[in-house]
């Protein structure tokens, strides 16, 4: 059987790793290539670069980061942020990424999911989804880093992503992101039940047991965290050890 994946995420702006809380108050925490290499040594199953560079001119920088990382890190690499067209996907994969993650652009132009999957295969296309509760067991989809409520029902949206050919959903809860009280289990459960494709839990990991909890309480395939790993509060290895001790299959 497939092992559950632990995925560190690096938020990158202008070629530097940064970390914000609730999408605001951003500070720099290091060099992305070095961070990726460190995570690789810790046993990361995949590494996500999330490019939050605002300017168009800055876009080339993330490709250099991927190119350099791909020379020394031999696990799958995913790049998200600012990918708008099939050409963007092609350039990102050519730089050495194995997958791209599309988020706001996919909400505004769902055809991007289908076009990307048709040309490069579903396995390359991860759809990142930011969502927030409007009532118990009801959530809507946000874009632009959690700033704009699109009023689209989360469950409808993830089903549509799957139909369009998405290979994976990376589900980020705005309610739990940065709060560090654990993943948003009700939201996660609802999405896992709605689609067959793998779902990555994101937003809210604050302590070692949060990962195992997500795997034990839901059928999510992977769990992602950023700050917890950045600030060296936990290593990927420690998280896996905890999962393993609870009977979860990890690499």
């Amino acid at each position: 059987m497939l092992a559950k994946r632990i995925i560190p995420c690096l938020d990158v702006r202008d070629g530097k790793v940064v970390k914000g809380v609730n999408f605001e108050g951003i500070k720099e925490v290091g060099d992305p290539v070095e961070c990726a290499y460190e995570y690789n040594l810790q046993g990361a199953d995949e590494i996500v670069f999330y490019d939050i560079t605002a300017s168009h001119e800055g876009r080339g920088v993330i490709l250099d980061v991927v190119r350099e990382t791909a020379k020394k890190v031999f696990v799958p690499l995913t790049v998200g942020g600012g990918i708008k067209t099939v050409d963007d996907i092609r350039n990102t994969l050519r730089a050495g990424a194995d997958k791209v993650s599309v988020n706001s652009q996919a909400v505004q132009n769902p055809q991007l999911i289908k076009d990307g999957a048709d040309v490069f295969g579903s396995q390359c296309i991860c759809v990142g989804v930011d969502a927030k509760a409007i009532s118990p067991n009801k959530w809507t989809v946000y874009i632009n880093g959690g700033r704009i409520d699109m009023g689209i029902d989360l469950i409808d949206w993830v089903k549509k992503c799957e139909q369009l050919g998405a290979g994976e959903i990376c589900l980020n809860s705005i309610d739990t992101d940065g709060v560090r009280g654990g993943f948003d289990l009700p939201m996660l459960k609802a999405v896992v039940d709605a689609v067959k494709i793998p779902v990555i839990a994101s937003g809210g990991a604050g302590k070692i047991g949060d990962f195992a909890e997500a795997f034990l309480e839901t059928d999510c395939s992977a769990a992602l965290a950023a700050s917890l790993f950045h600030f060296r509060e936990l290593t990927v290895g420690q998280v896996k050890e905890d999962c393993r001790s609870k009977g979860i299959i990890v690499r």
């Binding site: 059987m1 497939l2 092992a3 994946r5 199953d45 290979g167 994976e168 793998p198 395939s221």
Partner: peptide
Amino acid sequence: VIPHMGWN
């Protein structure tokens, strides 16, 4: 799930 994707 097909594709078979991940660590085995």
